[in-house]
C-alpha cells in the first residue's frame, strides 16, 4: 500500500466514521424529538401518553374561550365533535386562533386538562389542516355517530 492509497484510505474511513456518527445521532435525536398528534377522541380513549408532551389537534369549540381576567391565561375546549378536551394556555394566542377553526396545540395532560405550551393556528388560511381532518375522520370512523357528542354546544 503506497502513501497515497494509505492516505486515501484514512480519509475514506474518517468520512465514513463521521457519516455513521452523524446518522446515528440524527436517528437518536429524531426518536427523542418527534411528537405525535392525537385527536380528543384518542385522548379520551387513553391512547395519548400520560407523562410525555404530545400534540392535540381539533376545532376550538364555539363559546368555550374564556380569558382568566387580567392574566394571559386562556381556557378553551378543543373538540373533534365527538369528544372534547379542556385546554389551558398561558401566553398570547396567534392571530388565526378563532372559535370554530382548527388548531394544533402542544403540551401535556395534567389532571384532566391539557396544559399547552404552544398553540398553532395555520397561516395558510386553509379550512382545516389535513392532519386534523384526518383525526376527525378517524374519530368518526371509530365511533360512528354518538348520540350527544356536543353537550351544551352553542355560543
Amino acid at each position: 500500500m503506497n502513501a497515497v492509497r494509505k492516505r486515501r484510505l484514512i480519509v475514506t474511513l474518517v468520512i465514513l466514521g463521521a457519516v455513521a456518527i452523524a446518522a446515528g445521532l440524527s436517528v437518536f435525536a429524531l426518536q427523542q424529538n418527534v411528537t405525535y398528534l392525537y385527536s380528543p377522541t384518542e385522548v379520551d380513549a387513553g391512547k395519548a401518553p400520560a407523562h410525555h408532551p404530545f400534540r392535540l389537534g381539533g376545532i376550538v369549540k364555539e363559546g368555550s374561550v374564556h380569558q382568566v381576567p387580567g392574566t394571559l391565561t386562556t381556557d378553551f375546549v378543543i373538540t373533534d365533535r365527538f369528544q372534547s378536551i379542556p385546554v389551558r394556555y398561558t401566553g398570547i394566542l396567534p392571530d388565526l386562533f378563532r372559535t370554530g377553526l382548527s388548531t394544533i396545540t402542544t403540551g401535556r395532560m395534567e389532571h384532566g386538562t391539557f396544559v399547552a405550551t404552544t398553540v398553532l393556528a395555520k397561516h395558510d388560511a386553509t379550512y382545516m389542516p389535513p392532519q386534523v381532518k384526518q383525526a376527525i375522520a378517524k374519530a368518526k370512523e371509530e365511533n360512528r355517530i354518538p348520540p350527544h357528542a356536543l353537550e351544551g354546544g352553542g355560543p
Binding site: 376545532i59 365533535r81 382548527s102 379550512y127 382545516m128 368518526k140
Partner: peptide, 10 residues
C-alpha cells in the same frame, strides 16, 4: 344539533 345529523365538521 341538526348539524350533527348532517355530519357537518365545520
Amino acid at each position: 344539533e341538526t348539524a350533527l345529523d348532517f355530519g357537518i365538521y365545520g
